[in-house]
Design a protein around this nucleic acid. Sequence first.
DNA 1: CAATAGTTGACTAAATTACTCGGAATTAGG
DNA 2: CCTAATTCCGAGTAATTTAGTCAACTATTG
Lengths: 163, 163
Amino acid sequence: MRLTTKGRFAVTAMLDLALRESGGPVTLAGISERQGISLSYLEQLFGKLRRAQLVESVRGPGGGYTLARTVAEISVADIIVAVDEPVDATQCGGRENCHDNHRCMTHDLWTSLNATIFDYLSKISLASLVDNQKAKDTSVVQDQRTLRRTAACSDAIAGSNAA
Amino acid sequence: MRLTTKGRFAVTAMLDLALRESGGPVTLAGISERQGISLSYLEQLFGKLRRAQLVESVRGPGGGYTLARTVAEISVADIIVAVDEPVDATQCGGRENCHDNHRCMTHDLWTSLNATIFDYLSKISLASLVDNQKAKDTSVVQDQRTLRRTAACSDAIAGSNAA
DNA sequence: CAATAGTTGACTAAATTACTCGGAATTAGG
DNA sequence: CCTAATTCCGAGTAATTTAGTCAACTATTG
C-alpha cells in the first residue's frame, strides 16, 4: 500500500466522475479541465481503472466513463490499488534474504502496518467522499463571499505537510 | 503523508535501533548488515532523523546512534515525516489554481484524508512495535516451527491499533 | 462519411529512490 | 601522537516512477 500523488490524482478524478455521472458518461477531457490533470495522464489512469473494473467506458460521441459499481461499493483503497504498481513483496518473501529472524520480523511488521492502512482505506467509500463534498458545497452556497476558503485550504494542506 | 519504501526503510532501521540501544550506541554498519540496507543510504536517512531530533549520534570508536526520546515518544508518523520530502502543497495552495470551488474541494478532501492517515500513524509508537517484536521473539522460542507467525503479528498490530 | 471519444503503445523529461565514492571531522585506545 | 572506528557531508549515478506528449487506431453517433 503506497500513498503517492498518483493515487491522489486517481481518487480526485474518480470523485469528479462520481459527482457528475448522473448526467451520463463523463469525458476525460472534462475531468482534465476541471481537475487540472493532463488528458493523456488521465487516459493512462483510466486504462488501469477500467481494467480493474472500477469504471466502464462508452465510446463515440456522447461517450465517456461511468462507474462500474455504485459509489458505496468503491473504496479509496480500490482506486489506489488499481493505479499503483504491484509494489512487489520487497526483499523478504520474493528473495532468499529471509534467513535470520530479525530481518523477517521487521519486514512482516511493515507488512501488517500496510495491511492496517489498507483496511482503513477500504472502509472509506466514494459515497462518503461525495457526501462530504456535497455538504461542503451547500456551506459555500450559504456564504458565497467566503474567500477565506482558499486560505483555509492552503493552511490545511500546509499543515498536513508539516505534520 | 506519503507511504513509500523509503519510509519503510527508516521505520525498519529505527526499530532495529530501538531493539538494541540498551547495549549502547548502535552503529549504522550493524543496522546495514542486519537489515540489508546500504550503509550510505542509512547515512542519508539518519542524517534526516538526527536533524528531526529523533536520534542522537556519538562519534568515534564505540559510537553510533541512540534514540533521542523514549520509544513511547516516537511514532511511525514522526519517522516517515522526518525522511520524506515535504512533498509541497501540490497544485492548490502553492499555485493560483484554486479558483473554482471544485478544484479546491477535491484537494482539501485529499488533505483531510492525509490528515486522518497521519493521525492514525501518530498513534503507533516505536514502543508498541518493539513490544510486538518481542512477543514474537518469545513465541518463536516457544515453538520454533510456528509458521503462522505472520498472521499472529497482523492480529497483534490490528489489536494494538484498535486499543 | 465526418466528427467525437475511447484505446493503445511508444516515447520523454523531470523527480525520486537507492546507492556509490571520496573524503572530512571526531574520538577512543594504544 | 597515531590509528582505527565512526559519524558527517556532498557530489555523482543508475534505476524507477511520475507526469506528460504524440500518433495511430477503433467504435459510435448523426
